[in-house]
Simulated scan of single mutants.
Amino acid sequence: MKKQDLSRRSFLKFGVAGLVAVPVAGLGWTTTAAAAERLDPESAEAQALQYVHQSEVEGQYCSNCLLYNDPSQEEWGPCAVFPGKVVAADGWCTAWVARG
């Protein structure tokens, strides 16, 4: 019976550790996104989607796009279209999709 208790105890320890790790991992992702390189509008990937730092399309901004991964970022934030880069919250590209 002791062996079963140890297994149950181990399971509970790992379960609690896993629950604690999830929010902590989220903090690391936010820090990584904040430290990411800004997308250069002159880069080939930006030009392919006509990305600009300042939108000229009324009501369409990166910050209100479905692909803007962190709407809480007010100046620069991650975008699913440009992994590893951050885009201007006031920016725009042809991949813009209305946030529902």
Rank of each mutant, 00 (worst) to 15 (best):
W96L: 09
E42W: 05
T94R: 13
P78W: 04
N64G: 03
C93E: 01
R9S: 11
A95F: 04
N69E: 10
E45P: 12
L12N: 07
W76H: 06
A88N: 06
L66R: 05
S43N: 00
K85M: 11
L49I: 07
T30R: 14
A80G: 10
P83G: 05
C93F: 08
K3S: 14
L39E: 03
D90G: 10
E58R: 04
C62D: 01
L12T: 10
T94A: 07
A21P: 07
W76K: 03
Q73W: 08
R8W: 13
P83Q: 07
L66D: 06
D90E: 14
V20R: 06
A35L: 13
V86P: 05
T31S: 14
P78Q: 13
E58F: 03
G15P: 03
L67I: 05
P23A: 08
K3Q: 15
V87Q: 02
E45F: 05
M1L: 09
A34D: 11
A88L: 02
G84D: 08
S43Q: 01
L39T: 05
G26A: 09
D5R: 04
V86A: 07
L12G: 05
V81I: 14
V81N: 03
D40A: 01
V16P: 00
V52E: 01
V57M: 10
W96S: 08
Q60T: 02
L67D: 00
Q54M: 01
A89H: 06
A48V: 00
G91S: 08
T31R: 07
A35H: 05
G28L: 08
V16Y: 09
A80L: 12
E74W: 06
S10P: 05
A48R: 04
A89D: 02
R99C: 03
Y61P: 05
A35R: 11
F14H: 09
Q47G: 01
A36D: 12
P83F: 03
S10R: 11
A33L: 11
E74M: 12
K13V: 14
Y51N: 02
D90K: 09
T31F: 13
R38L: 06
L39M: 02
D5P: 00
G84L: 11
C93D: 11
S72V: 11
G77S: 03
A21V: 08
E42R: 08
S7I: 14
Q4M: 15
V16L: 10
E74Q: 12
T32K: 06
V87G: 01
D5I: 01
Q4K: 09
N64V: 01
E42Q: 12
V97Q: 12
A80K: 08
R9Q: 13
A98C: 06
E56V: 00
F82Q: 03
Q50S: 15
D40T: 00
V24N: 07
K13Q: 12
P23E: 05
H53L: 06
A88P: 10
N69V: 07
F82C: 00
A21G: 12
L19Y: 02
Q4F: 13
S72M: 04
K3V: 11
Q50W: 07
Q54Y: 00
E45T: 05
N64P: 03
F11C: 10
T94E: 14
